[in-house]
């Protein structure tokens, strides 16, 4: 599937022909910048911010379900919720003066926006581990770290991965805003299309983004399923 997608993106002529068919009235149907470059910029934006969301969000979720961090559970949940209610565009506007234009402020905005599903699912997943299983783990002589690594996290994994999947998919759509401050990506043709009233540009940006989202969904769902097999929730 990845191969099919790459092939599709690489063949600019197909897009030229297809879009010209759909929008015969437009003088130009393809954005000046190459589709392949746009897609790779977009993927880069999504990848960096998602990786950050996961490596900060999952440990954060783990921490607040352990005795040490339990007091911080409400605060962390609030921050994550806030991150999603605060419009990314506003985050951009606020961070540009401090961080400049381009990649960095966009990654910050995407990171904040994607945090909630990951943190919330990590917490929910860890809490859903049955109490008897945890009691047995402690009673048999596992310390906190061993119980976490050998029992809790493997059992919470499907839920956590579902949260990551949701976060990544939303991220692919939200990453459009990067174009507003020069971060590139598939938002560029969309914004240009809106400004110049060129629907072909908009489709050129939106269609690959949708395909990317579907692709990511499939790949992550497969990973999720492999964990579900092990927890035997057939």
């Amino acid at each position: 599937m990845v191969a099919a997608f790459t092939l599709l993106i690489a063949n600019t002529e197909w897009w030229q022909v297809g879009l010209k068919l759909l929008f015969p009235g437009e003088a130009q149907v393809l954005h000046p910048r190459s589709l392949l470059v746009l897609v790779s910029e977009h993927i880069r934006l999504v990848a960096i911010s998602s990786v950050l969301t996961v490596i900060i969000g999952v440990p954060l979720g783990i921490w607040v379900t352990q005795p040490g961090g339990r007091n911080f559970l409400p605060i962390v949940t609030d921050i994550a919720s806030f991150g999603q209610t605060f419009p990314p565009v506003a985050v951009l506007a606020l961070s540009v003066p401090m961080l400049g234009f381009g990649l960095l402020p966009t990654v910050v905005a995407l990171f904040l926006y994607g945090l909630l599903p990951v943190v919330r699912n990590t917490i929910a997943g860890l809490r859903s581990v049955p109490r008897d299983v945890l009691d047995a783990a402690s009673g048999m002589g596992m310390n906190r770290a061993q119980a976490l690594a050998r029992v809790q996290i493997p059992l919470a994994a499907p839920v956590i991965l579902a949260g990551i999947r949701i976060s990544v998919i939303i991220n692919i759509g939200t990453a459009m805003i990067g174009a507003v401050i020069g971060a590139g990506g598939l938002g560029s043709p969309i914004i240009a299309g809106l400004v110049q009233d060129n629907t072909a540009y908009i489709v050129e940006g939106a269609a690959p983004a949708a395909m990317l989202a579907i692709l990511a969904d499939q790949l992550l769902a497969d990973i999720e399923a492999s964990f579900a097999y092990r927890t035997n929730r057939r």
Binding site: D132, D135, V151, T231
Partner: peptide, 20 residues
Amino acid sequence: PEALRRTIGYAIQNVGLFPH
């Protein structure tokens, strides 16, 4: 405590088998 528990067998009502 962990060292102690590894020398004591522990069986509970709902068993608590690790499902994974």
